[in-house]
Design a protein around this nucleic acid. Structure first.
Length: 564
RNA sequence: GCCUCUGUAGCUUAAUGGAUAGAGUAGCGGUCUUCGGAACCGUUGGUGGAGGUUCGAUUCCUCCCAGAGGCACCA
C-alpha cells in the first residue's frame, strides 16, 4: 500500500534516526484540504534534532522521491507535511470497487489466522431485549470485519439456561392455574414465560416459603432432577426456538452453542484440580481464587453448597472453546463492562492452568443500552424487546412510505442495527424509542436510499460502461468528483482501522460521509445528460459508490434492497 | 471504604497529543417544473470545574464536582 511506501521513504530520508519504532505518524487528515495523508513528524522531531520544524519538513519534502502515486507534497506551518494522491492513482484505485471484488488488508492476532467471537448470549426464560440486539449487532460485524481482514472466524454463543431466574419462572408456572398445553403459538409461550417470571420474582421477595421452594427448584435444575426436568426442557426449548427466530431475523447464525447447564460437572473437576495445585484455595466453606497477589478481586468458584458459580463454569467453557477448533489466536468475548472484574479473574486462573492461552482471551466490553427514562429491568417492567422495536420501525416505514412488507422488514432490521452500530461500542446509549424509530439523517434507510438511487441511474443507462476512462488522467474533474474518488480510496483502510480498534462505528461514519458526498454531487451535476466521457466518469463514480455502500453495509451485517 | 469507567450543542452523539471539535435531531431560513424530495444548501448552538505537562490538550497527569458499574458464595 502507498501508505507503507510513504512511511518507508520518510524513514530513509531520516536515516532511521528515530527515538523509537512507529515514531512516524501518517494518517488521513480530518479535512480534505490538508491532502490525503498527513504527518506531524517534523514537529515531533524538533526537540530531537534541535532544529526548526519547518526546516525539517522542507528537508523531507525536498528529498522525497518522485512517485507516480503522489501528486504533490505541501509543508504547512507549524510543520505539517501533507501528501496528495495523484488523479491517476485514484482512478486506478476504483478498479476493485467497480469489479465488486474488494481485497482488504490482512490483519491477524497470531500465526493461526483463526479467532473465536463469542456473542449474543441471552438467557433462556427471559426476553431478548435491545441490549442483546446491540450485542448481536456488534458481534456479527466483528465477525465479518475479521473475516474480511483474512481470519477464519468461529461464531460462538454461550447461553445461560440455569440459575435462579429460571427457578423463579418454573415456580411461577407450577403455582399458576394456567395449563401450558393450551398455549399454541411461540409468541403466547414466550409471553407466558415472562409473566411467570414476574410472578416468581414477586413470590421470592414476599414469601419465605416460596423463596425456599424456588431455591429447591434451582438445585433440582442443577441436578437434572426428574421432578422438574421435563418442564425445564420444554420451556427452555421455547426460548431457544424464539432466539433462533430472532437470529434469523437479524441475519446472524452460530457455529457452536454452549450452554451453562453443560459446564457444571467439568467445572467441579477443574476447580478441584486447581485446588490441589494451590491455584484456588478453601475459604469459609467455599473454593475461591485469592486475587490479592495479582491486584485482582477475590472471587468464588465453588460455593459452600458445592455448586460451581459462574466463575467456575467459565473455566470449563474456556477449556472447550480452546480445544474444539484447533488453536485459535484470540477469543473475543462480547460482554458488558460490569463483568470486567469477573473476566480479569477468570482469565488469570485460566492462564495459570494453561499458560498456552496467555494473552489470547479478550473482553470486548461494549456498553449498556439504557432508556432515557432510566435503566431497563424486569422488575420495572420496562424491558424493550428487540422484536417489538423492529416491528415499531417497520410500521412507521410502511405508514410513511407505503412500501411492501418484505422491503419494510429489511429496512426496519437495518435501521435498528445501524442505530447501534453508528455509535462506538464504548458509549453507553441513552435510548429514546421515538428517536430510534426516526429514519431520517444518519440512518440505514438514508444509506440504502442512496444505494437504490445509484442503482436506479445505472439501470437507466443504455450503453455499457466504458472503463477506459480510468486510464485517462487527462480528464478534468470537478472538485466534488475528485473528493469522492479520494473518499472511495479510504474505504479499505477504514475497515482495517475498524478491526484493529474493535470499532465498527468507523465504517458507519465513513459510509455516511461517502453517501452525503455522493448526494451533494448528485444534486449539483447531471449524470445521464452529461457529455459522453464525463457521463462515463460519473456513471463510474455512481457504480463504485453503490458497490462500496453495499459492501460496507454488508460488513456491518446490514442488508440492502434494490428498490424501496 | 477501596477499585474501574464516564462527563462534548436543548436532545442523541463523532473524532483526535495537532490544523477551523464533525454529524444527526429539534429551531429558523432557503433550493426544485430533476437522473428517485426517504434529497440538497444556509443558519443558531458545544469539550463539567480548577490547576499541571507540551511547540500544541477535548485527549495525558493531579485535585474537585456529577453520574454509572464492580469489590465472596447471583448470572
Amino acid at each position: 500500500m502507498i501508505k507503507d511506501i510513504i512511511l518507508q521513504e520518510i524513514k530513509k530520508i531520516l536515516k532511521n534516526n528515530l527515538p523509537q519504532e512507529n515514531f512516524i505518524d501518517l494518517q488521513p487528515p480530518t479535512n480534505f484540504h490538508f491532502g490525503d495523508y498527513s504527518t506531524s513528524i517534523a514537529l515531533k522531531l524538533t526537540k530531537v534534532f534541535k532544529k526548526n520544524p519547518l526546516e525539517i519538513a522542507e528537508n523531507i519534502k525536498k528529498n522525497f522521491p518522485k512517485l507516480k502515486e503522489i501528486e504533490k507534497i505541501d509543508v504547512i506551518s507549524p510543520g505539517f507535511i501533507n501528501f496528495w494522491l495523484s488523479k491517476k492513482y485514484l482512478l486506478k484505485n476504483l478498479e476493485e470497487a467497480y469489479k465488486n471484488n474488494f481485497h482488504f488488508p490482512k490483519f491477524y492476532f497470531g500465526t493461526n489466522k483463526k479467532i473465536m467471537v463469542e456473542f449474543a448470549h441471552p438467557n433462556t426464560h427471559k426476553l431478548f431485549h435491545i441490549g442483546h440486539l446491540r450485542n448481536i449487532s456488534i458481534g456479527e460485524t466483528i465477525v465479518r470485519i475479521f473475516e474480511a481482514l483474512g481470519n477464519k472466524v468461529i461464531r460462538a454463543n454461550y447461553q445461560g439456561d440455569v440459575g435462579l431466574h429460571i427457578a423463579k419462572c418454573l415456580y411461577g408456572i407450577k403455582t399458576s392455574k394456567i395449563k401450558i398445553e393450551k398455549l399454541k403459538t411461540l409468541e403466547e409461550k414466550i409471553d407466558f414465560i415472562g409473566k411467570m417470571y414476574t410472578l416468581g420474582t414477586k413470590a421470592y421477595e414476599e414469601n419465605e416459603n416460596a423463596k425456599q421452594e424456588i431455591i429447591k427448584i434451582n438445585q433440582q435444575i442443577y441436578n437434572q432432577d426428574k421432578e422438574i426436568l421435563s418442564l425445564w426442557q420444554q420451556t427452555r426449548q421455547w426460548s431457544l426456538d424464539y432466539f433462533e427466530k430472532i437470529y434469523k431475523r437479524v441475519d446472524s447464525h452460530f457455529d457452536r452453542y454452549y450452554f451453562e447447564s453443560e459446564m457444571a460437572k467439568r467445572a467441579i473437576e477443574i476447580c478441584f484440580e486447581a485446588l490441589k495445585k494451590g491455584i484456588l484455595e478453601k475459604s469459609q466453606g467455599a473454593i475461591v481464587f485469592n486475587g490479592k497477589k495479582y491486584g485482582l478481586d477475590t472471587r468464588v468458584f465453588i460455593n459452600s453448597l458445592g455448586y460451581p458459580t459462574y466463575e467456575g463454569k467459565e473455566l470449563a467453557l474456556a477449556e472447550k472453546e480452546f480445544s474444539e477448533f484447533g488453536e485459535i489466536d484470540k477469543n473475543i468475548h462480547c460482554v458488558t463492562p460490569e463483568q470486567t472484574s469477573f473476566f480479569k479473574v477468570t482469565f488469570k486462573v485460566q492462564e495459570i492452568l494453561n499458560p498456552k492461552i496467555t494473552g489470547k482471551q479478550y473482553h470486548l466490553a461494549y456498553e449498556w443500552v439504557n432508556l432515557k427514562t432510566g435503566k431497563m429491568s424486569s422488575r420495572e417492567g420496562n424491558i424493550v424487546e428487540a422484536n417489538w422495536l423492529i416491528d415499531k420501525i417497520k410500521e412507521k416505514i410502511i405508514k410513511d412510505f407505503k412500501c411492501d412488507e418484505k422491503t419494510a422488514e429489511i429496512l426496519a432490521v437495518s435501521s435498528a442495527k445501524y442505530s447501534f452500530l453508528k455509535n462506538s461500542p464504548k458509549t453507553a446509549i441513552n435510548f429514546d424509542i421515538d428517536e430510534s424509530i426516526s429514519i431520517n439523517g444518519n440512518s440505514a434507510p438514508y444509506l440504502i436510499y442512496t444505494y437504490v438511487r445509484c442503482r436506479s441511474i445505472l439501470n437507466k443507462k443504455n450503453t455499457s460502461l466504458d472503463l477506459s476512462i480510468t486510464k485517462d488522467d487527462s480528464i478534468i474533474l470537478e472538485i466534488d468528483e475528485l473528493n469522492i474518488l479520494r473518499k472511495l480510496y479510504q474505504f479499505k483502510e477504514v475497515v482495517l482501522k475498524a478491526g484493529q480498534e474493535f470499532s465498527p462505528n468507523h465504517i458507519a461514519t465513513y459510509l455516511y460521509d461517502l453517501t452525503s458526498q455522493y448526494n451533494l454531487f448528485y444534486q449539483k451535476y447531471p449524470i445521464l445528460k452529461a457529455k459522453e466521457n464525463i457521463k462515463n466518469l460519473r456513471l463510474l463514480i455512481t457504480l463504485t459508490t453503490a458497490n462500496t455502500i453495499k459492501k460496507g453495509l454488508e460488513l456491518l451485517g446490514i442488508k440492502t434492497v434494490e428498490k424501496m
